[in-house]
Write a protein that binds this DNA or RNA. Structure first.
Lengths: 119, 119
DNA sequence: TCATTTGCTTACAATTTTGTAAGTGTCACT
DNA sequence: AGTGACACTTACAAAATTGTAAGCAAATGA
């Protein structure tokens, strides 16, 4: 849980108020969030499918990031309680609206990322 | 200094290799980096000017973020050793090339950021 | 029905980032 | 020579994020 009484927290909030880019950044920042969003742009996925689609992510962190994305309304967790069972994660319209932002990030990275030396 | 032997570090590197958006994100992530970049888009500034332009930032963190931005080649630290004295921070062409990305982030934030309740 | 898979949660630890406070060296001015 | 502004650096601490390992309940499949 994050403290709401720290200088750190206050600084972040203040920045969001006078820099909307910083706000956007905070929504997509986090080790695996972008990857999750990109996967969900292709199609809706279940927890386990995400886990397999994202090598290296652990259960704990996947759950955390999904929860954060859900809290920020970028995705919906659809559990059909009446009949079905397994929940499915699906991008919300708000989540889909990030596509342009992600494309912009991708484009810059593709152009400017230094070539990785293979090992 | 960051450890290069941690799982955390390895995960980050791996992500950068297969998601260029994640790479871009890593370059602009950091509490005050965006703000510094935005200020420098307007005009070149000295350390002290940046400090005054960005309320809340501390000397230590300003120095750290400037160093990171410099290492990522987004800005130049120009110290005219021959005659002048005070170093000036100036965006590199690479730094300026981020303008489109930042605009994209700003646009999304402006449209989708929830209204702040004043206090 | 009973083991297995699935979708998580919990307790804990390592790592990373950010903040606090004080100090250092260079330069300018007096 | 002394004082102060400026551009940092250092030692330290707090906070935040990420990773490791295990556990657990509900749903599924045999």
């Amino acid at each position: 849980m994050r403290k709401t009484t720290s200088t750190n927290y206050e600084n972040e909030q203040a920045l969001h108020e006078f820099c909307s880019a910083a706000f956007t950044l905070s929504v997509i920042s986090g080790r695996w969030k972008l990857t999750i969003l990109v996967k969900l742009m292709e199609r809706d996925l279940r927890y386990g499918e995400l886990k397999h689609a994202i090598p290296g992510i652990t259960e704990r962190v996947l759950a955390l990031q999904l929860k954060a994305l859900e809290e920020d309304q970028l995705l919906l967790k659809i559990s059909d309680d009446t009949s079905g069972h397994l929940p499915i994660y699906s991008l919300s319209p708000l989540g889909r609206s990030l596509e342009a932002v992600i494309n912009s990030l991708s484009a810059w990275g593709t152009t400017h990322q230094p070539i990785q030396t293979s090992r």
